[in-house]
Simulated assay, not measured.
Amino acid sequence: MGRLTTHVLDTAKGQPGSGITIEIFRLAAGHREHVGEAVTNMDGRCDVPLLEGEAFTPGEYELVFHAGDYLRVQGVEDDEPRFLDVIPLRFGVADSSQHYHVPLLLSPYGYSTYRGS
């Protein structure tokens, strides 16, 4: 069964990014549909897949990571507005029977992502 998962790692501190709110959107024909929300646990992961089974279909998606709130809690000082606050990641799903793992590697002034397994 296909599923969508994520994992947030704080690369500046070398630890999981816990307590980060993530919104999930499905994109289609100029429309952005909110399909879910999750919060990372102490391991920087979500307790259940973001989407799976019939809810996970081919198409374009966006994960929105509320990183600024996490960075504030971690005591990272920055001018307002913050350099990084809300981080949107858009990606395509061609085969929804597969596992799409979309991690976020986060630091106060940069981030990266990739498709993992």
Rank of each mutant, 00 (worst) to 15 (best):
V35R: 02
G36L: 06
D85E: 15
G110P: 00
T21H: 04
F91T: 03
F65M: 00
R32V: 15
N41L: 10
Y109Q: 07
L89N: 02
H66Q: 15
D10Y: 11
G116D: 14
M42A: 14
L104C: 00
G75M: 04
R72W: 07
P108W: 04
E33Q: 12
V76S: 01
P103N: 10
L50A: 07
M42K: 11
G44E: 15
L51A: 02
A29L: 13
Y70S: 03
R45A: 08
V8P: 10
P49E: 08
D95F: 02
D78K: 07
R90C: 11
A38E: 15
S97P: 03
A67T: 10
L9T: 12
G36D: 00
G17R: 01
D47G: 15
D79W: 07
Q98P: 01
S96L: 11
L105A: 11
L71T: 04
G30R: 08
A29F: 11
F65T: 01
G19K: 05
I24N: 06
D95T: 06
G30I: 10
H34N: 03
F65W: 12
V93N: 02
Y100A: 04
L106A: 04
G110K: 04
L106S: 00
F56G: 08
T113D: 02
Y111W: 12
V35K: 01
E54G: 12
E52R: 10
F25G: 05
P81V: 10
V73F: 05
L89W: 01
S107L: 03
F56R: 06
V86L: 03
G53K: 11
Y70N: 02
F83S: 10
D85R: 09
D69Q: 13
I22V: 14
D47M: 13
A28Q: 13
P108Y: 03
T40C: 11
E77I: 08
F56N: 05
T113I: 04
G19T: 12
S96C: 10
F56C: 08
D43Q: 15
D69W: 14
G68Q: 14
D47A: 13
E60I: 07
T21S: 11
H7K: 11
G44C: 01
Y70M: 06
V86H: 01
T11I: 12
L51M: 09
T113G: 06
H31W: 04
R45L: 12
G68H: 05
G44Y: 13
C46Y: 00
T113L: 01
M42E: 15
R26H: 10
H34R: 13
G68E: 15
D43W: 14
V8H: 05
A29R: 14
Q15M: 12
V48Q: 08
E23N: 08
G116R: 06
H99Q: 09
R90P: 00
L104M: 08
L9I: 09
